[in-house]
Design a protein around this nucleic acid. Sequence first.
DNA 1: TCGAAATAGATCGTGATACGATATATTCGT
DNA 2: ACGAATATATCGTATCACGATCTATTTCGA
Lengths: 146, 146
Amino acid sequence: MNADSDLTIDRYRDLAEFRRQIRQFLHFSELTAKEHGIEAQQHQLLLAVHGLPDGTNPTIREIASRLFIQHHSAVELVDRLEVTGTVVRHPGSQDKREVWVRLTPAGRAILRRLALAHRTELERSGPELAQALNSVLRHSRRVAAS
Amino acid sequence: MNADSDLTIDRYRDLAEFRRQIRQFLHFSELTAKEHGIEAQQHQLLLAVHGLPDGTNPTIREIASRLFIQHHSAVELVDRLEVTGTVVRHPGSQDKREVWVRLTPAGRAILRRLALAHRTELERSGPELAQALNSVLRHSRRVAAS
DNA sequence: TCGAAATAGATCGTGATACGATATATTCGT
DNA sequence: ACGAATATATCGTATCACGATCTATTTCGA
């Protein structure tokens, strides 16, 4: 079997369905975040900061790394979040170059509501997403060889 | 157990890890698409069109529906894809209001390379994504009640 | 110890994306 | 026939992410 015949129309459809499931979830996330007064990316920054492991400092650079964005994109997100009153900047205690980002009570309240909404949505749509991912993996080259 | 105590720090971390896995995948997708000369959203439109079920026409509206975007956002994506030479517009045969979007040979070639790259990436990172999703669902309210 | 290199963050300008509002062309329903 | 509905397009705006560049602070080697 050559590489060409390995990519049948059904394989494209598996990939398309997987992407559709991801987009459906992200679309839900987008709408829900906006209903609560923030943008989807801003919500994800709140979640990334609040979900940081113990002992990891909430610096701009750490946040950027976890969101897979450049540090100046994280700067801009924090700018916009500060305007909404959901986070505040603190100067780093040891290293004065650092800026630590902390959620305000308002930020924690929004994040909590969004976390509950997202969990409920994942209860509903998570199995379909897992199923779509499985369909891609089930027919992938390595797995198909077994 | 009230709703507050139900959302412990570990639940936030589960959600954060799930989002991190999704962002990692989308980051890979973004970089890989750009390496092949198109934007990530444009790649997803190509995939959505090529992965359409038999008998479903590739109209702007159908595409918009599958990408969870407004129809005029799909118009703009197709505009940009036409410039790159990966798709062409055809007037609808029956309904002259419709526009059918078709991949060019160049579009199919790019999509094929991207499909292979994404499948390889999902072989690598898919299990972690599934695991992260499971961690969210395992501790969700309904599941926890069992 | 002192100055260059490295690191952390901020700023500016740009392009892609998605949106709401609105416009045009075509088709449908009565 | 003709107003309502549908399909697509256009325009202006906001978010987001980027590269390039800047300042402040820390680190490290001569």
